[in-house]
Design a protein around this nucleic acid. Structure first.
Length: 863
RNA sequence: GCCGGGGUGUCGGAACCGGCAGACGAGGCGGACUUAAAAUCCGCUGGGCGCAAGCCCGUGUGGGUUCGAGGCCCACCCCCGGCACCA
């Protein structure tokens, strides 16, 4: 067996990885004279090891970056680390080390794995959000928002994770549990720092329409999350008091049917209203019971609605009636005003509650089949209809009444039109150590004082104690005690750090000038590189990171610091890597380690399999057989190139010698530039002299593969079909070698075919492509395969020769014809009708119609 | 309940704008090479009927539009994901 027969991926990976680094092959600088392409993957948390999801993410990204580079774009393709966060702190507690030690060791290990994968990052631009050089600017960002009035310290019901011993943003609660550790969260009334993302709710919603390159489902999820709803705030005077109870409703047209009101148990007036009434004890007991529940238990308890009468009454401003005020578990404090008008006839929840507690039901909108008598109503009616029991609006269509009543109520001062959002302000303070300290100082004399920009960064101290449950920064006297930047007197530092999602909401700007010590990013560079052209990451950030980043970008845009109101032009949410139908996880024991796979099959086969096995957006089932297939293909390409290398090099030598001879004869024996084309100068063109059908057919296959691969990647990011096209090309070249006598094979044609093949393989299997390119002698003469232009296809080659035309009779295939591509429609129709097979089918029948589709088919309709 | 995505061979998946259903890969079967095995190279591989040429059926179900439907329209079933007493 020849030495060359198997591609030695271990040796090739080692060699090229080093050479590429030495040559700075992937270094990039802003260059306004060239079109840019910013390709970005969501930077990872440095957990210590890559998992298959990472490998998939970066294989897609690297192929995208490499493809665009070859297409002539100046490509920014950087990598960094989301290196703040709780796991490092937990590891510190467990191992009695510093979070930084654990974090930076993990980064080193993961960087090594990424480099092994052959990812073409410009490593000079690497960032980690836990470096003071980075978090200084995260603190700057906080101050910018502060300056713009977008930071607020307020007391509010917030989510508390008892396990992580910190508060969480709304977006970080999944199904009532902490997104990181799965512990059910509790509601607590705490004073915390918020970013006013709700001030941008409308723009975050409206600008979703600008994002044509985003998957529909991500936009829908954001729309749902923002949850805009138009309605009215209505004021209900409280009987016997000088106060009003304000509710939010989208159905002010049903106000005449409001027969009671409901307050959230944690509404500030709930206990207040009950005080001194016979209901006081019952209300107190109820409120205490409900508010003690975890968020999840409370949500579940709501399936059975429960409530108590507060003992107080309000006046329905439309009817003037006294209606009872209740409190119930189905009304939430953190939506609207925490109070509702209950209209049991026209709201399912109110209906269920009213029936359960025997409260009156009054129909005010009559749809088809809806009884006028509320007692006979079987279920709430939420549709439109004719107004009844509604004073001056009786008889009106409810949609008309909806408009009139809004105007009338505003004029009468009963209420006003308003818009409500589900979106809450972004709670950014965390009672944790391993994050960017919030740059705030508390002074007894001056109150809350932001740390001036010149004093940044507020550094994390080293003398803290890591204990389960405690907020570590409070244990560092040196950190807490400070002087007031405003009056110079003694003051205390804020001991909370920022949510790590603040770090990741702006990191893509930092890559453009990662070492800048004077500003978060260089304006000129940001205006050149941004927005990100292609962003790639998991769907789990559909709301979290992607919403926060859009918000922060809009703030920076308003400040004039960045060129666009949206950060990410196109978004690809890649599917999960699963095994045996389930997400890989330790508990299921179905984890496949990238390390082992890289060792056994190499980077090229791993990348190829992952790109080939499924379209990027869909989940990918890991398959042992599948990666073996990819590995087979890698070796198959290698054998093909190795088998052709001899004749190709020999023929090239003759050509070079001949060219040199001709030049020497013309110019004398002067020093010659190498016979090679300059790097990146283009393609090898075969001489078509004396070509037979085999040669023409192969050449057509080459161009067909280029056309398919190019559109699959550029227009659809369908890497699986692009790879399939390359496999077909390889099969075609093997077929040529198999069918044509070795002596008759055309080395220049084979060289031209391999030239295209290797360049197209370069984004997928970078090591193999470079090794094979080098074996053919082209690296010496033309430079790295990764610096070549992407191949072009010639439509003339594709259109030359014959095509197979399908002939149908009444839509069923009855014959196939080989015809010239340029054949006229009239002639094609004649050939089809003359076909003996077709004749058998149309004999004795009348041809009603003949449909011809050029290049594809003829359909003869007979009766 | 609402919203989004999907249902195609034994499996992963192709079929781009309504034009040959099943590309490519995996698995299976067969052949060549080999003392043999592996590796490699070549071929076959949706179902049914037929000696064969070939014919019929076939993209979750039922209907429709069309010369022609996996892709469009209507009704429904199932799977995955998101949101959910949001007033």
């Amino acid at each position: 067996m020849a030495v060359d027969d198997r591609y030695n991926f271990h040796a090739a990976e080692k060699k090229w990885r080093q050479r590429w680094a030495e040559e700075g092959l992937y270094h990039v600088e802003a260059d306004p004279s060239r079109p840019k392409f910013y390709c970005l993957e969501m930077y990872p948390y440095p957990s210590g090891k890559l998992h298959m999801g990472h490998v998939r993410n970066y294989s897609i990204g690297d192929a995208t970056a490499r493809f665009h580079r070859m297409r002539g774009y100046n490509v920014l393709y950087p990598m960094g680390w989301d290196s703040f966060g709780l796991p490092a702190e937990n590891a510190a507690i467990a191992n009695q080390t510093h979070p930084a030690d654990w974090t930076y060791a993990n980064i080193a290990a993961m960087r090594e794995q990424m480099q092994r994968l052959g990812l073409s990052y410009d490593w000079r631009r690497e960032i980690a959000c836990s470096h003071p050089g980075y978090y200084k600017w995260t603190q700057w960002l906080f101050l910018l928002l502060y300056k713009r009035g977008l930071v607020e310290r307020k007391k509010a019901p917030v989510n508390w994770c008892p396990r992580c011993a910190t508060v969480l943003a709304n977006e970080q609660v999944e199904d009532g549990a902490c997104w990181r550790c799965g512990t059910p969260v509790e509601k607590r009334e705490l004073e915390q720092w918020f970013f006013k993302i709700t001030a941008y709710a409308d723009r975050l919603l409206a600008d979703l329409d600008l994002l044509e390159g985003w998957p529909e489902r991500v936009k829908v999820m954001q729309r749902n999350w923002i949850g805009r709803s138009e309605g009215m705030e209505l004021d209900f005077p409280i009987a016997g008091r000088d106060e009003k109870l304000t509710v939010f409703t989208t159905r002010h047209d049903t106000i005449y049917g409001a027969t009671f009101m409901v307050l959230a148990p944690d509404h500030p007036l709930t206990l207040e209203l009950a005080r001194g009434t016979a209901q006081e004890d019952a209300v107190r007991a109820f409120v205490e019971r409900v508010t003690r529940l975890t968020v999840r238990d409370r949500a579940e308890a709501v399936d059975a609605k429960e409530g108590v009468f507060t003992g107080a009454y309000a006046i329905n401003p439309a009817t003037g009636e006294r209606i009872p005020i209740w409190t119930a578990n189905y009304v939430l404090m953190d939506y609207g005003t925490g109070a509702i008008q209950a209209v049991p006839a026209h709201d399912e929840r109110d209906f269920a509650f009213a029936r359960q507690y025997g409260l009156p039901v009054r129909v005010v909108i009559q749809g088809e089949g809806v009884p006028a008598d509320g007692d006979r109503l079987k279920e709430a009616y939420t549709g439109p209809g004719r107004m009844i029991h509604s004073g001056p609006y009786d008889g009106m269509d409810s949609r008309e009444a909806y408009r009139r009543m809004a105007e009338d109520f505003e004029r009468q001062g009963i209420g006003r039109r308003t818009v409500n959002y589900r979106l809450r302000d972004w709670l950014i303070s965390r009672q944790r150590y391993w994050g960017a300290p919030i740059p705030i100082v508390y002074c007894d004399r001056c109150g809350i004082v932001p740390v001036p920009e010149e004093q940044l960064p507020v550094l994390l101290p080293d003398d803290v104690r890591f204990e389960v449950g405690a907020s570590p920064l409070t244990t560092s006297e040196r950190f807490v005690r400070t002087t007031c930047p405003s009056c110079g007197g003694p003051a205390r530092r804020e001991t909370d750090t920022m949510d790590t999602f603040v770090d990741s909401s702006w990191y893509y700007y930092r890559y453009t000038s990662p070492r800048d010590e004077h500003q978060p990013f260089d304006r000129e560079k940001v205006f050149y590189w941004l927005p990100v052209d292609q962003y790639i990451g998991g769907i789990e950030h559909a709301v979290l990171h992607l919403l926060y980043s859009r918000f922060i970008t809009k703030v920076l845009y308003d400040e004039g610091l960045v060129p666009s109101p949206e950060p990410f032009q196109r978004l690809l949410t890649q599917g999960m890597v699963i095994k045996d139908g389930a997400k890989m996880s330790k508990s299921k024991g179905n984890v496949v380690s990238p390390e082992d796979i890289l060792e056994e099959y190499g980077a090229d086969a791993t990348r190829l399999f992952i790109l080939f096995a499924a379209p990027p957006e869909r989940d990918l089932e890991w398959s042992e057989h599948g990666i073996e297939g990819a590995s087979r293909f890698v070796h198959r390409v290698w054998r093909l190139v190795a088998g052709c290398a001899g004749p190709i090099r020999e023929a090239a030598g003759q050509v070079a010698v001949a060219r040199e001879g001709a030049l020497a004869a013309r110019q004398g024996a002067a020093a010659e530039p190498p016979a090679a084309e300059s790097p990146g100068a283009g393609s090898l063109e075969p001489s078509k002299e004396g070509w037979g059908p085999e040669e023409h057919a192969l050449w057509r296959e080459v161009h067909r593969a280029i056309a398919r691969t190019t559109t699959d990647i550029a227009e659809r990011m369908q890497y699986n079909t692009a790879v399939a096209a390359l496999m077909e090309l390889v099969n075609a070249i093997y077929g040529y070698r198999d069918r044509v006598e070795p002596a008759a094979q055309r080395p220049d044609l084979l060289a031209a075919a391999l030239d295209r093949l290797l360049r197209m393989l370069a984004p997928f299997t970078p090591y193999l492509a470079e090794e094979a390119w080098d074996l053919l002698g082209w690296r010496a003469t033309r430079g790295s395969v990764h610096q070549q232009p992407w191949p072009e296809w010639d439509p003339a080659v594709l259109e030359a020769g014959t095509v197979e035309i399908v002939v149908q009779v009444n839509g069923k295939v009855r014959d196939r014809l080989q015809v010239d591509q340029g054949i006229g429609e009239e002639q094609l129709r004649r050939l089809a009708l003359e076909s003996p097979k077709v004749q058998d089918w149309i004999q004795g029948k009348t041809v009603a119609r003949v449909v011809t589709v050029p290049g594809r088919l003829v359909n003869i309709v007979v009766k």
